[in-house]
């Protein structure tokens, strides 16, 4: 039964999700290429719609999808989440953030299918962009109402990996609240290196925003990274032990 469900998930919903990504990009391409909006804002809204579609497919694949949100405003902030799966990119849409600037690794910009969207939306290549320029791009994006999303673990390979402090340094420099987000179950649904979509319980939890001002001193961002990791991973480990 388990294998049957995995096969159905992969063949039906996995193919459906890929088809949705491909066809929606193809249809939107002419409009977004010529009218990307101010600093790619229209492309980012399009990614939000795509993400909502992917969440629909995640809901079909999952045993259960639970989203726990707070009432915090959806304005400029730094969203930081743990990273388990390629599906994680789309989960921030579940919290309602519809204008998100992602800071990701360089290889994502090289994917033929995603390249157009990544560049059009003005997403930032963390490996190629010098820190000062990245800071200015994020400052400008935040002034335009953008939320900035990073996965401080930097990779999906080790789900318990350290949270690097760059995201928190950015929040400190721009004086933006940090919104921690816990993602549980996507790693079981689509593990690294697998194409099979397993049925698993997916829980997405948004925590209350944290002001960088509550962390003082030269190592404030490092301490914040440690505290946010503990908050997120305590939740994820509890969920995954159930």
């Amino acid at each position: 039964m388990k294998y049957f469900r995995t096969a159905i998930n992969t063949l039906l919903w996995g193919s459906g999700a890929l088809l949705w990504l491909g066809l929606s990009t193809l249809c939107a391409f002419p409009v977004l290429y010529f009218w990307p909006g101010k600093d790619g804002q229209r492309v980012r809204k399009f990614v939000y719609i795509q993400s909502k579609g992917i969440l629909f497919f995640i809901r079909l694949c999952a045993k259960k999808l639970t989203v726990e949100k707070t009432d915090a405003p959806l304005g400029p902030c730094v969203v930081t989440a743990n990273h388990q799966s390629a599906l994680d990119l789309y989960t921030v849409a579940a919290l309602g953030f519809d204008n998100v600037l992602y800071i990701t690794k360089g290889w994502v910009f090289k994917l033929p299918f995603f390249r157009f969207v990544m560049n059009g939306a003005g997403y930032i290549d963390a490996e190629k962009t010098p820190p000062q320029i990245m800071l200015e791009q994020c400052r400008k994006a935040a002034q335009n109402g953008c939320a900035i999303m990073l996965f401080p673990q930097g990779s999906r390979k080790n789900p318990q990996a350290r949270f690097k402090s760059g995201a928190f340094f950015l929040a400190e420099q721009l004086n933006l609240p940090v919104v921690p987000m816990a993602i549980s179950g996507t790693g079981k649904m689509l593990p690294v290196g697998s194409i099979w979509l397993r049925a698993s319980r997916v829980v997405l939890k948004q925590f209350e925003p944290i002001s960088p001002r509550s962390y003082s001193g030269e190592l404030g961002h490092l301490k914040m990274a440690q505290d946010v990791k503990k908050k997120i991973m305590d939740f994820v480990n509890t969920q995954e032990a159930k």
């Binding site: 820190p131 690097k164 402090s165 760059g166 340094f169 030269e218 190592l219 961002h221 490092l222």
Partner: peptide
């Protein structure tokens, strides 16, 4: 460890 970690490391070791 990245470049920001290197800066943090100096502060940590100073302390």
């Amino acid at each position: 460890l990245d470049s920001l970690d290197a800066v943090d490391m100096v502060v940590v070791l100073e302390q």
